[in-house]
Design a protein around this nucleic acid. Sequence first.
DNA 1: ATAATTTTTTAGATTTGTCTAAATTTTTTT
DNA 2: AAAAAAATTTAGACAAATCTAAAAAATTAT
Lengths: 220, 220
Amino acid sequence: MLNYSRTEENYIKAIYHLEAGKDSVSTNDLAESLQTKPASITDMLKKLKKKKLVSYQAYYGCRLTLEGKQLALMIIRRHRLWEYFLSQKLDFSWDEVHDVAEELEHVSSEKLINKLDAYLGFPRFDPHGDPIPDEKGAIANDKLISLNNQPENKPCIVSKIGNQSVSILEMLEQKNIAIKTRLEIIKKYPFDGSMEVKVGRSRTTILTKELAHNIFIKEV
Amino acid sequence: MLNYSRTEENYIKAIYHLEAGKDSVSTNDLAESLQTKPASITDMLKKLKKKKLVSYQAYYGCRLTLEGKQLALMIIRRHRLWEYFLSQKLDFSWDEVHDVAEELEHVSSEKLINKLDAYLGFPRFDPHGDPIPDEKGAIANDKLISLNNQPENKPCIVSKIGNQSVSILEMLEQKNIAIKTRLEIIKKYPFDGSMEVKVGRSRTTILTKELAHNIFIKEV
DNA sequence: ATAATTTTTTAGATTTGTCTAAATTTTTTT
DNA sequence: AAAAAAATTTAGACAAATCTAAAAAATTAT
Ligand SMILES: [Mn+2]
Ligand SMILES: [Mn+2]
Ligand SMILES: [Mn+2]
Ligand SMILES: [Mn+2]
C-alpha cells in the first residue's frame, strides 16, 4: 500500500462512511462532511480517480474501488486502535478520544499499528462500540440492533452508541449505562415509544425512544 | 502556545539542534540539515521571523527567540516521549524508534503528551540517553562524560550513546552494553586508547577509543 | 586592496489544496 | 415538455512550501 497525503486519507475515509447503504456518494454530501466547498470535492475526486482509489463519473457521484476500500479500512483501523489506547491506557474519557485519534490516524507506519494492536491485546471494538478492522481489513460485523427493536424481558448487552455527542454521553453516564452494561426492557409504552429498563441487576430507569434508538445491543 | 505547521515545527527543531554551541545558525547548514535548498530556508526564515519564533538578519543567519526555544523544547519533548513509548511499551528496537517519532512528534495535543508522560512514569531520558524536557520545558542537563574520560576501577552507568547508527547498536548489543548497563574500566592502554572493561558484574570486553568515545556515563 | 570564491537572497515558476463566481448538467415542478 | 430549482463542474485566483537560475553580499585568497 502506497503512501497518501493526510487530505487524501480524510477524503477516502469520508467516502467510506458515506457510501454505507447508498450506491454512490454525492459531491454535496462529501462537501458537507468534509467542511469544504463542492468545487474542491470535484478537484479531489479527479485526483483520486487517477490514483484508482475511487470510481467517479461527472455529475453522478463516486464510489471507492477495492483498493480505496482497503485503504479506508486501514485508516479506520488506526483511528479506532488509537481511540482504544487513549481510553484504555491514557485514561481519556469517552468523548475526548475522537479528536486526538483524528490526528494519530495519519501516522502510517504499519509496524507501529500492528505492534500497538498486539500491545492492546487485539481489541475488536473501540470505546464507542465500533468494530476495529484487523491487519487484513476484516471487520466484525456483529449485526447490532437498536434497543427500540428489542422485545420486553429479553436481557441484552450494550455494544455500541449510535451518536457520539457530549450530550448523550452525559445522559448515559447519569443513567449508569455504558458499553457492556446489561439491560433488560421491563415495559414498553407504545403511546410515546418510551420504555422502562432494568440497568444491570437492580436499578431501573425510563428511556425515551430517541435515546433508545441510539443504544445498540447484542443479545446475551 | 499557538499551533504551527509540521514544516514550521521541523524548522524550529532543526535550528534548536544546530544552534547548540554556535551563536547563530547559517542558511546553508539549515538547508543541509533539512534536506532542502538554501532559497527555501530564506523564505521560511522570513516567515518565522514574522511569527517571532526566530531572530533573523539577512546574510547573518538566525537564532531562536525565547518563544521559539520553548516551542522547540515541546517538540523535542513529544519526540522523545514517543521514542520511549515505542521502545518500552511496543518493544521497538533502539534504532527503529526515531523515524516513527518524527511523525508522532507533530500531534500537538498537550493533554495527550502530559497523559502519555504520566503513563510512562515521567521518564527523564529517551532510549538514546537524551534528556526529555518536562511539561514546562525544563531539561535535565546532567553533564554526561564520555567513557574515555573515566579513570580505572571506578564503576559507572551507561546513560547515553553519542551516535545512533545501526552499526554502533549492533556492536553494543553484541557486547551486552545498553543504557543503564554498569561498566568498570579494568585497564587502559595508552598506546592505542583501547581499554578492558567489566560489563555488568562478570564479563569483560575490549573497547576501542572510537567506541568508548560514544559511550556516555554517569558515576554511580 | 582587488580578485576569486562561497554564501545567501531575489525573482519567477511549480505543486497541492483551497476558494469564489460563473457556466453547465441533472432533477424537480408545473 | 418547458421552466425552475438544485447539484455539479469549470475557470481563474490564492496561500503554503518548494524549486531553479540569476543577482547580490560576504568571506577568503592573492
Ligand atoms: Mn472516532
Ligand atoms: Mn483525519
Ligand atoms: Mn530521535
Ligand atoms: Mn518531524
